Amino acid sequence: MTNAWLPPEQYIETIARATSYACIYFTDIAGRPFQLRSHNKGEVWQWAGGNLERGETPWDGARRECLEETGINFQGVQRLLGVHFVPQREHWPANHIGFIFDGGELSDAQLARVRLTDEHTEWRVATVDEWRGSMTPVNFKRLEAIHTARETGTVAYLEGL
């Protein structure tokens, strides 16, 4: 059997496909995670972020989405906290890969300036333990892993969460 070179448009049909998102993880000055309640996704809590646009890097996408969703024009250091891989599912025909960046701490003044779009109904800061009761177990595991990565200076790899 010969491995023949395929033109890119044919080769791409033979490999896994993926969509991607990027977001920024913030806490307040007390170390409590900041999250937004999604209006569009069954009222789940999530970080400022969203799907990448064509040609956009994860870092640029995270910053764009953060500005769009909160009014925060994040100018901090580019520090990756985690990569999130979700395999193809029945209701989504591609893998989904996420990049979670560290946004550092938001001061009380910065929190007071948060402006939401119609995509989110509210924002909140709460301790990790307080978030446990407000989130699905899977989403909470993701929050807990990213919070731990930030505290320990590591990068979390999250698969299937």
Rank of each mutant, 00 (worst) to 15 (best):
45 W>F: 13
66 C>D: 05
6 L>V: 08
54 R>E: 06
24 I>S: 01
57 T>P: 05
61 G>Q: 01
16 A>V: 08
15 I>T: 10
23 C>A: 07
12 I>Y: 13
15 I>D: 13
34 F>S: 01
25 Y>F: 11
72 I>K: 10
58 P>D: 07
45 W>G: 01
8 P>W: 03
57 T>G: 06
15 I>H: 09
18 A>T: 09
57 T>A: 05
22 A>L: 01
8 P>I: 00
50 G>N: 01
27 T>P: 14
34 F>P: 06
3 N>A: 11
71 G>F: 15
35 Q>A: 12
36 L>M: 02
42 G>W: 06
34 F>Q: 02
34 F>R: 01
12 I>R: 07
57 T>R: 00
6 L>E: 12
18 A>G: 09
33 P>V: 02
13 E>K: 07
15 I>Q: 08
77 V>S: 14
8 P>Q: 00
60 D>I: 01
41 K>Q: 11
37 R>L: 09
68 E>T: 12
47 W>H: 06
39 H>F: 11
66 C>N: 07
13 E>G: 03
55 G>S: 13
48 A>D: 02
5 W>G: 10
29 I>H: 11
81 L>C: 06
11 Y>Q: 08
19 T>S: 03
45 W>V: 03
7 P>L: 08
66 C>Y: 05
66 C>Q: 06
53 E>S: 11
78 Q>H: 14
3 N>P: 08
29 I>L: 14
58 P>I: 01
24 I>Y: 00
20 S>A: 06
17 R>E: 05
32 R>V: 07
75 Q>W: 11
24 I>L: 01
67 L>S: 13
19 T>V: 05
3 N>I: 14
56 E>Y: 04
69 E>P: 15
26 F>C: 04
39 H>R: 04
23 C>T: 00
6 L>C: 10
26 F>K: 04
44 V>A: 07
34 F>L: 03
32 R>W: 14
28 D>Y: 09
23 C>F: 03
38 S>K: 05
48 A>F: 08
31 G>I: 07
25 Y>V: 00
17 R>N: 06
80 L>S: 04
15 I>P: 11
69 E>M: 13
54 R>S: 13
47 W>N: 02
9 E>S: 14
47 W>R: 02
24 I>D: 00
49 G>N: 01
36 L>C: 03
47 W>D: 03
44 V>H: 04
78 Q>R: 12
58 P>S: 05
21 Y>W: 06
48 A>L: 05
44 V>P: 15
19 T>A: 06
42 G>S: 05
54 R>C: 10
80 L>E: 06
50 G>F: 03
54 R>N: 11
9 E>I: 08
40 N>R: 10
47 W>L: 11
46 Q>C: 08
